[in-house]
Design a protein around this nucleic acid. Sequence first.
DNA 1: GTCCATGTTCTTTA
DNA 2: CTAAAGAACATGGA
Length: 278
Amino acid sequence: MPELPEVQTVVNTLVPVAVGATISAIAIRKPVYIEPANIDLAAHLVGRQIASIHRRAKRILVSLDGGDRLLMHLGMTGRITVEAPGTAPLRHTHFIISVSRNGSSAELHMHDPRRFGGVTWLGQASGEDGLGPEPLTITAKQLEAILAATDRPIKALLLDQARIAGLGNIYADESLFVAGIHPLTPASRVRGERAAALCRAIKQVLRRAIQHGGSTVRNYVDARGSKGSFQKLHNVYDRAGEPCRACGAAIQRIVLIGRSTCFCPRCQRPPRLKTHRA
DNA sequence: GTCCATGTTCTTTA
DNA sequence: CTAAAGAACATGGA
């Protein structure tokens, strides 16, 4: 469920409880959820203090005193929630970190029914992660260079984490709407002012989404268990058939690289493709 | 039973 | 060789 704004919101709500706290215990309820296989996570984590928690793209990086790091990825259905000590884990709670600070303690429950997420011990491993630049800080020039390198549909580019990292299906569609760009437009054709507009649109959409605690389309909640509200402000995502908030035209849905893709056929004009199907 | 789902990665095809 | 399309992963809700 989590794209950049949701992951950032989880981090924001996790930090006040976890940073500065000491890990008193962990529980691994689903060993295959932890990587690398067979690592003794308890030996690395118990007794350590959490120095900081940051987001990189859609990933959560927990840094410990001494510089070791733990990566937590939420996949499609992952959540990390703060629970009272002794809270009974749900069926799909795979990993629990017990923390305490100033005499008060809490548990961080990582729950993930589909198990597309996971927990990876990085230790002192370097920062190389194969991810593209962060969309909140990318420059228009940088974005334009990335787009110029390929003729793949612009939507496919925005979802390619190696090129730009953090957007998912919701925010790719929402950003393209704000920029007035059709999702099938070849990436290399988005240049100059249109590339700059897309860059601004991406940042505006992500910032507003973070301000609204992310989008809860299905079951996303932050570390406090609260839903986001940005889904109410979606212009296109999950609105197929509904009227465009800008022009009233029916929002259209197509499938692109296997993903549901929504856009306004009037506000986002289709590219003129020179090729056609035989 | 069927289809679809906020993500990533491996395999197959062109 | 590269790029793009497809399948797979595991579960639950409509």
